[in-house]
Design a protein around this nucleic acid. Structure first.
Lengths: 230, 230
DNA sequence: GTCTATAACCGGATAGAC
DNA sequence: GTCTATCCGGTTATAGAC
């Protein structure tokens, strides 16, 4: 379904092993010590390779982060498959999918802030609007297209076209909120998800009201602007 | 009106001079070479102080960025004073104020991406929701409170309370868009500002419609959540 | 041509003397 | 408040091994 890396995959079996060892070591160390405190030297040592070899597989420490994103994305996709097969109400699908994002990412909450930061940085080659992250971005947008298409909601064509991109942006907003959430069981984020998904579906239902026609056109134009900028 | 720094201001006249020299050198070098390419050593050298001395005034390179934010904020405040004194239509005030943000920041566009990135990073002590940026955040929110209060718009109390915070968030969104905008004369950003400010004021006018009552409550609850999280 | 390793570079940050 | 010397870690150069 997806390539698990941005850079070229290894050509040999040995390379495959090394690459996986480096990523596994990085993930373990991020969990143990956090992102900043994990040095590339420590990653290499735990993976049983030299520092130089690490850079053969990952062009930078940030590239390990992008790989991490792919990793969580795949966990997420697997987690939501049953829901998407079973449920056809748009609000329920959306709520389930977005809740699954934060449930999937929960084990990584402690270092998610550092990671999100490096990726949100517009100067980073890995930022979500940039070239290197395009494959992942497209896949997430496609995921949301499936969430919408597989629902029984009947949406105007102009909205249906832009909605997946909008939902991708929305998901990033939720993740940003979640990073700051220190509440027990992350209940505040879950609450925000429930409220916002309801709100989104409700507003979609209202989009045909005459008073909102103008706003709707404007909102869609904006989303197109943002998508085009990316 | 505001202290121009986060850290303690220098105690002596000599210190004042050094601090200003360091910031001026940093700003000049950021403009010449960008943020990443500007080294702390180069800043110190141009300022005529040692590397160690620079760290006496600015705890990190990022703290120079926060100072830079204060700098642009003050330029912005000065730029909008005439408009706020003259104009009382909410949409016009809002549009003018937000346009002024990006006009003020335009000279720094080339390195704004790198700077925004460091500050948006949730792990950074300087990120807009954090402790060290609180003074600046409060001042910007206060600025938007003035934009609303000085207008002739009559808003429900619950909305009037949360709107300034919402507008502060909105301004950050616009800045993020602007960073990516490569269009001639930054026309795309200006267009987005015109459209969104209109949209905001229009939705404020519709907030009392019965169909939107529920959504309004929800949106306000969300804004409160986000504000409380910060 | 693919993988690995060692050594060095560079720049942000810190220690501690004056 | 200022300096010099040093640390530390991301990154790169480059040479040799499979």
């Amino acid at each position: 379904m997806s390539i698990s890396s941005v850079t070229e995959p290894p050509k040999t079996k040995r390379g495959e092993t090394s690459r996986a060892a480096i990523f596994d070591a990085a993930l373990a160390l991020f969990l143990e010590r956090g992102y900043e405190a994990t040095t590339m030297r420590a990653i290499a040592e735990r993976a049983g390779v030299s520092l130089g070899s690490s850079y053969h597989y990952f062009a930078s420490k940030e590239h390990l982060v992008l790989e991490f994103y792919w990793h969580t994305h795949q966990l997420h996709v697997a987690a939501i498959a049953p829901l998407l097969a079973r449920e056809h109400d748009l609000a329920a699908r959306l709520r389930g999918v977005v809740r699954a994002v934060i449930v999937t990412c929960e084990p990584f909450h402690a270092f998610a802030g550092a990671i999100f930061g490096t990726v949100a940085n517009p100067a980073s080659p890995l930022n979500p609007f940039g070239r290197e992250a395009k494959a992942l971005r497209d896949e997430v947008i496609e995921l949301y297209a499936g969430v919408v298409k597989g629902s029984d909601a009947r949406l105007p064509a102009d909205i249906a076209t832009e909605l997946p991109t909008l939902l991708w942006l929305y998901q990033m907003g939720i993740l940003y909120f979640w990073i700051f959430d220190r509440s027990q069981g992350r209940l505040r984020t879950l609450d925000v998800i429930d409220q916002t998904t309801d709100l989104i579906v409700r507003l979609l239902g209202l989009a045909n009201l005459p008073v909102l026609r103008g706003s709707r056109k404007r909102v869609l134009g904006l989303v197109r602007s943002i998508a085009a900028g990316a």
